[in-house]
Amino acid sequence: MARTIQSLERAAAMLRLLAGGERRLGLSDVASALGLAKGTAHGILRTLQQEGFVEQDPASGRYQLGAELLRLGNSYLDVHELRARALLWADDLARSSGESVYLGVLHQQGVLIVHHVFRPDDSRQVLEVGAMQPLHSTALGKVLCAYDPVAHSQLLEAEREAFTVQTVTALPDLEGVLDLTRARGWAADVEETWEGVASVAAPIHDRHRMPVGAVGITGAVERVCDDGELRAQLVAAVRDCARAVSRDLGAGRF
C-alpha cells in the first residue's frame, strides 16, 4: 500500500466518532477515544473547525459535526439560484455600461447563457437565455476555461472553429490567452466570434472560491473598444459586477 497521511486518517476517525446521532464530544473524549495526545487532537479539531467540518458549541466547548459536511454532498450551485443572485448587479452593469449583459455557465462543450439583460436603449432585442456560445472564442468561454479545470478539459476536446480571421484556434496560442486571463482577471473577445462585436467578461466565484460562472458585456466594437483596446472603464465595471455577485454568493473579498 502506498504511503498514507497520518493526520488525515486521524481527522477521518474524528469525523466518524462525531457522526451518528446528535453527538457532542469534549476534547478529552475525542483524544482518549483515539489514543491521541490532547494537543494533537486539538490541532486536528481546530483545523476541521476552520474548514467548517466541525463546530464547537460555545457554551459547553464540546465538538459536533459542522454544517459544511452536510453541504459537501450537494454543493453544486443551481444556475437559477445564480441568476436570482446576479439579477440586481447585472441590471446595474447594463445601466452603467450601456451594453447588454450575459451570464454564462459551462454546459457540455460550450457556454450556456443563463441570464441576459438587454442593452438599455429602445431597440428591439430578443432574450437569449438558453442559447449556447463557443468556449474558445467568446470572453465568457475564455473566463470559464481559464478558471474551471473541467471547462479547460472540454476546450481541449471541442472543435475550435475559426469564426473570423481574429479567432484563435491553435492550442498553444489559446493557452497563452488563458494565462493572460488568469493574470489580469478578465478575458476579451474582439471580433473573434462575430464581426463587429466585442465583449469583456470576468469570473464569478462561490464561497469556496470555486468558479461557477462568468459575467460580461457585449456590444459594437466601436463602443466597447478605444483604439483597438477595450475601454478600461468597461473592464472595471464588469469586474465590479463579477465581484459583487461573488460576494452575494458568499465569496470573500479578493
Binding site: D91, A94, R95, H116, V117, F118, P120, D122, Q125, L127
Partner: peptide
Amino acid sequence: DALRANWRRAAEW
C-alpha cells in the same frame, strides 16, 4: 415623459 425616458427594458418574453 422624462420619467418614461428613464424607463429601461431589461428583458422581454
